[in-house]
């Protein structure tokens, strides 16, 4: 089994704060982490490796610092790590991101065929959930989004079965290999790095691929290759409302007044 896991390094958005003067994100001092969804995707891939043997390759597109996220993945037990970094990749939207990732997967697969590609459901910074489906579309791979677990991997007959969780139901989907799966958060318990893997990770240097190492056309890269642009950004404001009517008195009194106000609106009892 050979699985490629797409890992994005993200700022821990739970730690992001807004500068009240400039209304911009304060990113200084905010720790960079492996996108939480991707960590679960990686764990799912490592479990398949534990069970069937084989190899897990992790790939990230980002600035040179993203090597840290890849080294972390090595410490969990990934075998090979590739960092896609090039000034020309900067400013990519999801279409340009999926282009570079898909080209990298093609290159990896040309020497070591890939059975499965794992991605997170979404990244916690961009939040679009578009890159996984985009990569699958580019590579013409079967796509199973929102997976909770891989139920069965059958390379002999060339299929995988995964359980996906969607509104109101769980689906067991069988897909032809190679397939791309996007993982939900919290679906598995992420392992601790073992001492030998930690030592290996400390010494490991991810391979660096830029534009020159990939079979890409410049027109599809970075800002140039991105049809969407962030035109402006601002801090969210709550919608203004007509002034609030305050109800005062003892709890019993306010309860009475409130219910009198709600009943004529036929709000109550419309189960």
């Amino acid at each position: 089994m050979h699985a490629v896991v797409l890992l994005k390094q993200v700022p821990d958005t739970a730690e992001v704060r807004i500068d009240p003067k400039t209304n911009t994100l304060i990113r200084e001092g905010v720790p960079s982490i492996i996108n939480p969804y991707d960590a679960h995707a990686l764990e799912e891939a490592l479990r398949l490796k534990d069970k069937y043997g084989g190899k897990v390759t992790v790939v990230s597109m980002g600035p040179p610092q993203a090597a840290e996220a890849l080294k972390k993945a090595i410490s969990y037990g990934a075998d090979r790590a590739i960092l896609l970094t090039d000034r020309k990749f900067a400013g990519s939207d999801t279409l340009a991101t999926s282009y570079v990732l898909a080209k990298a997967i093609e290159k990896i697969a040309s020497s070591e065929p890939v059975d499965l590609v794992f991605a997170g459901k979404q990244a916690i910074d961009g939040d679009t959930a578009q890159v996984g489906p985009g990569v699958a579309a580019r590579l013409n791979m079967a796509l199973i989004t929102y997976i909770e677990r891989v139920e069965e991997f059958n390379p002999m007959e060339g299929y995988v079965v995964a359980v996906r969780k969607i509104e109101g139901r769980k689906e067991y989907v069988r897909a032809k290999l190679p397939a791309l799966l996007t993982a939900l958060k919290g679906i598995n318990e992420i392992r601790y790095a073992t001492m030998p893997d930690m030592i290996r990770a400390a010494r490991y240097q991810p391979e660096i691929w830029g534009k020159e190492q990939l079979d890409v056309e410049e027109a599809f890269l970075g800002l140039k290759g991105s049809p969407t642009q962030v035109w402006k950004s601002f801090v969210p404001q709550a919608k203004a409302r007509a002034k609030v009517e305050m109800l005062t008195g003892t709890p019993e009194e306010v309860a009475k007044v409130l219910v009198e106000k709600l009943v004529p609106l036929t709000l109550v009892a419309n189960k």
Partner: peptide, 8 residues
């Protein structure tokens, strides 16, 4: 985006 911290 960014977990709802900003709008774009």
């Amino acid at each position: 985006a960014f977990g709802g911290n900003i709008m774009a």
